[in-house]
Structure formats: structure tokens, C-alpha cells
Measured scan of single mutants.
Amino acid sequence: TEKQERAIEYIRRLGYSEEEARRILKKANGNPDLAKEIARRIG
């Protein structure tokens, strides 16, 4: 989804690889607090 793409872009800007960014997002899917934090940061 567009939100996922924005989140991946944001995480990659922090210096993670695409693969790492996707792994972090997968974790965020099972972790509402982390997901909220990422969403808050990407606006």
C-alpha cells in the first residue's frame, strides 16, 4: 500500500536496506506501538 511504501522510504532514509526496512515493517504489523510510532514519524 502507499502507507507501506512511505514507511519503507522513511526507514531506508534512516540507513536501512530495503530488506531490513521490510523486516521492520513486518514486525510493526504485529506491534501496534511500533506501527503507530512509524506512522507518526512519516505523517
Score class of each variant (00 low, 15 high):
residue 17 S to T: 14
residue 30 G to L: 06
residue 25 L to F: 05
residue 15 G to E: 01
residue 5 E to N: 12
residue 42 I to Y: 09
residue 26 K to W: 09
residue 36 K to A: 08
residue 9 E to Y: 04
residue 13 R to G: 15
residue 34 L to M: 09
residue 29 N to S: 08
residue 37 E to P: 01
residue 43 G to W: 13
residue 37 E to M: 08
residue 2 E to G: 10
residue 11 I to M: 11
residue 10 Y to Q: 12
residue 24 I to D: 00
residue 11 I to F: 06
residue 40 R to F: 05
residue 24 I to Y: 03
residue 36 K to L: 14
residue 12 R to E: 10
residue 37 E to T: 11
residue 39 A to E: 02
residue 11 I to S: 00
residue 31 N to T: 03
residue 17 S to I: 02
residue 25 L to D: 00
residue 25 L to Q: 01
residue 1 T to R: 13
residue 9 E to K: 07
residue 14 L to G: 01
residue 16 Y to M: 05
residue 35 A to M: 04
residue 27 K to P: 01
residue 42 I to R: 12
residue 5 E to T: 09
residue 12 R to F: 03
residue 26 K to A: 14
residue 11 I to N: 00
residue 37 E to H: 11
residue 6 R to H: 12
residue 42 I to G: 14
residue 25 L to P: 00
residue 20 E to L: 06
residue 20 E to I: 07
residue 42 I to Q: 14
residue 10 Y to W: 07
residue 28 A to C: 09
residue 34 L to K: 09
residue 24 I to G: 00
residue 17 S to H: 03
residue 25 L to A: 02
residue 28 A to D: 00
residue 17 S to W: 02
residue 34 L to I: 11
residue 8 I to D: 03
residue 25 L to I: 07
residue 28 A to E: 01
residue 35 A to R: 02
residue 43 G to L: 15
residue 19 E to W: 10
residue 19 E to M: 10
residue 8 I to K: 04
residue 30 G to F: 11
residue 38 I to E: 05
residue 18 E to G: 05
residue 1 T to M: 12
residue 35 A to W: 04
residue 13 R to E: 15
residue 23 R to S: 13
residue 33 D to R: 10
residue 8 I to Q: 02
residue 31 N to G: 02
residue 38 I to P: 01
residue 26 K to G: 09
residue 11 I to G: 00
residue 12 R to S: 06
residue 42 I to S: 12
residue 5 E to V: 09
residue 37 E to I: 13
residue 7 A to T: 10
residue 36 K to R: 11
residue 2 E to A: 12
residue 14 L to I: 05
residue 28 A to Y: 04
residue 40 R to P: 03
residue 8 I to E: 04
residue 15 G to S: 01
residue 36 K to S: 06
residue 32 P to K: 03
residue 10 Y to M: 09
residue 41 R to F: 06
residue 18 E to F: 06
residue 15 G to H: 02
residue 3 K to T: 13
residue 18 E to L: 10
residue 13 R to I: 09
residue 35 A to T: 02
residue 38 I to T: 04
residue 9 E to M: 06
residue 16 Y to P: 00
residue 18 E to I: 08
residue 41 R to P: 04
residue 37 E to S: 11
residue 16 Y to A: 02
residue 25 L to N: 01
residue 38 I to L: 10
residue 31 N to A: 05
residue 9 E to T: 05
residue 33 D to A: 11
residue 15 G to D: 01
residue 8 I to A: 03
residue 25 L to K: 00
residue 20 E to S: 07
residue 35 A to H: 02
residue 26 K to E: 14
residue 5 E to A: 12
residue 14 L to E: 02
residue 12 R to N: 03
residue 2 E to Y: 02
residue 3 K to Q: 15
residue 27 K to N: 10
residue 40 R to N: 09
residue 22 R to S: 05
residue 34 L to D: 05
residue 1 T to S: 13
residue 29 N to F: 10
residue 29 N to E: 10
residue 42 I to W: 09
residue 15 G to Q: 01
residue 26 K to S: 11
residue 19 E to T: 10
residue 1 T to F: 14
residue 35 A to L: 04
residue 1 T to C: 08
residue 30 G to D: 07
residue 33 D to M: 08
residue 21 A to G: 03
residue 4 Q to M: 13
residue 25 L to H: 01
residue 13 R to T: 15
residue 40 R to V: 10
residue 43 G to Q: 15
residue 7 A to V: 11
residue 12 R to Y: 03
residue 28 A to K: 01
residue 8 I to T: 02
residue 13 R to S: 15
residue 3 K to I: 13
residue 13 R to Y: 11
residue 18 E to C: 08
residue 32 P to L: 11
residue 24 I to K: 00
residue 10 Y to D: 14
residue 40 R to Q: 11
residue 31 N to C: 06
residue 37 E to R: 14
residue 29 N to D: 10
residue 41 R to I: 11
residue 20 E to V: 08
residue 30 G to R: 04
residue 6 R to F: 08
residue 29 N to V: 05
residue 13 R to D: 15
residue 39 A to R: 02
residue 2 E to H: 07
residue 23 R to Y: 12
residue 20 E to D: 08
residue 5 E to D: 11
residue 5 E to G: 07
residue 6 R to S: 14
residue 37 E to F: 05
residue 5 E to K: 14
residue 40 R to E: 14
residue 24 I to N: 00
residue 4 Q to I: 15
residue 18 E to T: 07
residue 1 T to E: 11
residue 37 E to W: 06
residue 7 A to H: 03
residue 12 R to Q: 14
residue 19 E to R: 08
residue 3 K to S: 14
residue 26 K to T: 11
residue 23 R to L: 14
residue 12 R to D: 01
residue 24 I to M: 07
residue 15 G to I: 00
residue 28 A to M: 04
residue 11 I to D: 00
residue 9 E to Q: 08
residue 39 A to K: 02
residue 12 R to M: 15
residue 10 Y to R: 06
residue 34 L to S: 05
residue 29 N to P: 01
residue 31 N to R: 07
residue 2 E to R: 13
residue 11 I to W: 04
residue 27 K to L: 15
residue 26 K to M: 12
residue 7 A to P: 02
residue 2 E to L: 06
residue 28 A to N: 02
residue 1 T to G: 10
residue 1 T to V: 12
residue 43 G to Y: 12
residue 24 I to R: 00
residue 13 R to L: 15
residue 43 G to S: 15
residue 29 N to G: 14
residue 26 K to P: 00
residue 30 G to M: 10
residue 16 Y to S: 01
residue 5 E to L: 13
residue 17 S to E: 03
residue 19 E to F: 10
residue 14 L to F: 06
residue 24 I to W: 03
residue 16 Y to F: 15
residue 12 R to L: 12
residue 18 E to S: 06
residue 33 D to P: 04
residue 24 I to P: 00
residue 27 K to I: 15
residue 15 G to L: 01
residue 28 A to I: 04
residue 23 R to Q: 14
residue 36 K to D: 03
residue 10 Y to H: 12
residue 38 I to Q: 04
residue 13 R to F: 12
residue 10 Y to N: 08
residue 19 E to H: 09
residue 4 Q to S: 10
residue 4 Q to V: 14
residue 42 I to E: 13
residue 4 Q to L: 14
residue 22 R to Y: 12
residue 16 Y to E: 00
residue 13 R to A: 15
residue 17 S to M: 03
residue 2 E to N: 11
residue 9 E to P: 00
residue 10 Y to K: 06
residue 39 A to N: 02
residue 8 I to N: 02
residue 31 N to P: 01
residue 3 K to W: 08
residue 41 R to C: 12
residue 37 E to K: 14
residue 4 Q to Y: 09
residue 2 E to S: 13
residue 12 R to T: 14
residue 14 L to S: 02
residue 13 R to P: 00
residue 41 R to S: 12
residue 38 I to D: 03
residue 37 E to L: 09
residue 32 P to G: 07
residue 14 L to Y: 04
residue 27 K to Q: 14
residue 2 E to W: 01
residue 36 K to P: 02
residue 32 P to F: 09
residue 16 Y to C: 05
residue 11 I to V: 02
residue 14 L to D: 00
residue 13 R to K: 15
residue 9 E to C: 10
residue 30 G to Q: 06
residue 24 I to S: 00
residue 41 R to D: 08
residue 32 P to S: 09
residue 26 K to F: 10
residue 6 R to K: 14
residue 27 K to A: 14
residue 42 I to D: 11
residue 34 L to N: 05
residue 8 I to H: 03
residue 42 I to F: 10
residue 10 Y to A: 14
residue 28 A to S: 06
residue 25 L to W: 05
residue 31 N to W: 06
residue 35 A to Y: 03
residue 20 E to T: 08
residue 37 E to N: 09
residue 10 Y to F: 09
residue 35 A to Q: 02
residue 28 A to G: 03
residue 21 A to S: 05
residue 21 A to Y: 01
residue 4 Q to A: 13
residue 21 A to I: 07
residue 25 L to C: 03
residue 23 R to T: 12
residue 10 Y to P: 03
residue 34 L to C: 07
residue 21 A to M: 03
residue 16 Y to K: 02
residue 23 R to I: 13
residue 3 K to Y: 08
residue 32 P to M: 07
residue 43 G to M: 15
residue 17 S to V: 02
residue 41 R to M: 11
residue 17 S to F: 02
residue 36 K to E: 08
residue 8 I to L: 14
residue 43 G to E: 12
residue 35 A to I: 04
residue 33 D to W: 08
residue 36 K to G: 05
residue 41 R to H: 12
residue 18 E to P: 06
residue 8 I to V: 10
residue 7 A to F: 07
residue 41 R to K: 13
residue 2 E to D: 14
residue 11 I to A: 01
residue 36 K to Y: 11
residue 6 R to N: 13
residue 9 E to N: 07
residue 11 I to Q: 00
residue 43 G to T: 15
residue 30 G to N: 09
residue 16 Y to Q: 01
residue 12 R to H: 05
residue 21 A to C: 03
residue 24 I to C: 05
residue 13 R to H: 14
residue 22 R to P: 00
residue 9 E to R: 09
residue 22 R to K: 10
residue 1 T to W: 13
residue 19 E to Q: 11
residue 26 K to D: 13
residue 18 E to R: 06
residue 39 A to W: 01
residue 38 I to K: 03
residue 15 G to W: 00
residue 27 K to R: 13
residue 17 S to P: 04
residue 27 K to S: 13
residue 40 R to L: 12
residue 3 K to G: 13
residue 25 L to S: 01
residue 35 A to C: 05
residue 23 R to K: 13
residue 25 L to M: 12
residue 23 R to H: 13
residue 34 L to R: 09
residue 3 K to E: 15
residue 41 R to E: 10
residue 20 E to K: 04
residue 29 N to L: 11
residue 11 I to P: 01
residue 38 I to A: 04
residue 13 R to V: 08
residue 13 R to W: 13
residue 29 N to T: 04
residue 14 L to C: 07
residue 35 A to N: 01
residue 5 E to I: 13
residue 4 Q to N: 09
residue 9 E to V: 05
residue 34 L to H: 07
residue 32 P to Q: 05
residue 25 L to R: 00
residue 26 K to H: 11
residue 32 P to H: 06
residue 22 R to F: 08
residue 24 I to L: 07
residue 27 K to W: 15
residue 11 I to L: 12
residue 43 G to V: 15
residue 4 Q to E: 13
residue 30 G to P: 01
residue 6 R to C: 13
residue 29 N to W: 08
residue 5 E to C: 12
residue 16 Y to T: 01
residue 19 E to A: 12
residue 3 K to D: 15
residue 7 A to M: 07
residue 22 R to T: 06
residue 3 K to M: 14
residue 19 E to I: 09
residue 8 I to S: 02
residue 7 A to Q: 03
residue 30 G to K: 04
residue 34 L to W: 08
residue 10 Y to E: 15
residue 35 A to P: 01
residue 34 L to E: 06
residue 25 L to G: 00
